[in-house]
Amino acid sequence: MSIQRVQPGARMSQAVVHGDTVYLAGQVAEGASVADQSRAALAQVDELLASVGSDKSKLLNVTIYLADIATFAEMNSVWDAWVDGQNPPARATVEAKLATPDYFVEFAVIAAV
């Protein structure tokens, strides 16, 4: 079974396809708020999924990392508008230190192709 790497770099790929599954690197984005960063990061998820012939209706599992769990409702307001409500994935949301204090939210996605 082949492995396809999307936007590979020396440290990581933005996505890896193995069989009928795509694994995305954690997606972060710039923005002044959790909502701004969530919208931008989820747009990146859309682009990466489309690049391998998938979309958000095929999400299997999403882990969301928040720098501050107090922003859970703010992130969910963006998530609820974005997610395919007919095909929601399994999901976990946790509080964690992210790579830089400039990041407030990160989305780690696994989807079917």
Results as ranks from 00 to 15, higher is better:
residue 14 Q to G: 10
residue 14 Q to P: 00
residue 16 V to F: 04
residue 16 V to K: 02
residue 17 V to L: 11
residue 17 V to C: 08
residue 18 H to V: 15
residue 18 H to W: 11
residue 18 H to Q: 13
residue 18 H to N: 02
residue 19 G to K: 04
residue 19 G to L: 10
residue 20 D to T: 06
residue 20 D to Y: 01
residue 21 T to A: 05
residue 22 V to N: 10
residue 23 Y to W: 12
residue 24 L to F: 06
residue 24 L to K: 09
residue 24 L to Q: 11
residue 24 L to H: 11
residue 24 L to D: 12
residue 26 G to L: 10
residue 26 G to W: 04
residue 27 Q to F: 00
residue 27 Q to M: 14
residue 28 V to S: 07
residue 28 V to T: 14
residue 28 V to E: 05
residue 28 V to M: 13
residue 29 A to M: 02
residue 29 A to H: 05
residue 30 E to L: 08
residue 31 G to L: 08
residue 31 G to Y: 09
residue 32 A to Q: 09
residue 32 A to K: 09
residue 35 A to M: 02
residue 35 A to Y: 01
residue 36 D to G: 00
residue 36 D to C: 02
residue 37 Q to N: 10
residue 37 Q to L: 08
residue 37 Q to P: 10
residue 38 S to P: 03
residue 38 S to Q: 04
residue 40 A to Q: 10
residue 40 A to D: 06
residue 41 A to F: 01
residue 41 A to G: 01
residue 42 L to T: 04
residue 43 A to T: 14
residue 44 Q to I: 10
residue 44 Q to P: 01
residue 45 V to R: 02
residue 45 V to Y: 00
residue 46 D to C: 05
residue 47 E to H: 05
residue 47 E to K: 04
residue 47 E to L: 08
residue 48 L to D: 06
residue 48 L to K: 03
residue 49 L to E: 08
residue 50 A to Y: 01
residue 51 S to L: 08
residue 51 S to T: 03
residue 51 S to C: 06
residue 53 G to F: 11
residue 53 G to K: 09
residue 53 G to M: 06
residue 54 S to D: 07
residue 56 K to Y: 03
residue 57 S to C: 01
residue 59 L to C: 03
residue 59 L to N: 06
residue 59 L to S: 02
residue 59 L to Y: 09
residue 59 L to I: 06
residue 60 L to C: 01
residue 61 N to R: 12
residue 61 N to E: 13
residue 61 N to D: 14
residue 61 N to W: 13
residue 62 V to I: 13
residue 62 V to C: 06
residue 62 V to W: 07
residue 65 Y to I: 00
residue 65 Y to L: 11
residue 65 Y to M: 07
residue 65 Y to Q: 07
residue 66 L to V: 04
residue 67 A to K: 06
residue 67 A to Y: 03
residue 68 D to W: 00
residue 69 I to W: 00
residue 69 I to M: 02
residue 70 A to R: 09
residue 70 A to N: 14
residue 71 T to I: 00
residue 71 T to C: 01
residue 72 F to H: 15
residue 72 F to M: 12
residue 73 A to L: 08
residue 73 A to P: 05
residue 73 A to D: 15
residue 73 A to G: 13
residue 74 E to H: 07
residue 74 E to C: 05
residue 74 E to D: 15
residue 75 M to Y: 14
residue 76 N to W: 07
residue 76 N to H: 08
residue 77 S to E: 15
residue 77 S to L: 08
residue 78 V to M: 09
residue 78 V to G: 11
residue 78 V to C: 09
residue 79 W to I: 12
residue 79 W to A: 03
residue 80 D to T: 11
residue 80 D to L: 15
residue 81 A to Y: 09
residue 82 W to A: 03
residue 83 V to M: 10
residue 84 D to F: 10
residue 84 D to G: 11
residue 85 G to M: 11
residue 86 Q to I: 08
residue 86 Q to T: 15
residue 86 Q to F: 12
residue 87 N to M: 11
residue 88 P to M: 11
residue 88 P to A: 07
residue 88 P to R: 13
residue 90 A to P: 01
residue 91 R to P: 03
residue 91 R to K: 15
residue 91 R to M: 15
residue 91 R to Q: 14
residue 91 R to N: 13
residue 92 A to P: 00
residue 93 T to H: 06
residue 93 T to D: 01
residue 93 T to N: 03
residue 95 E to K: 01
residue 95 E to H: 04
residue 95 E to D: 12
residue 96 A to S: 15
residue 98 L to F: 10
residue 98 L to T: 11
residue 98 L to W: 07
residue 99 A to M: 15
residue 99 A to D: 15
residue 99 A to S: 13
residue 101 P to S: 15
residue 102 D to Y: 14
residue 102 D to E: 15
residue 103 Y to H: 14
residue 103 Y to C: 05
residue 104 F to I: 06
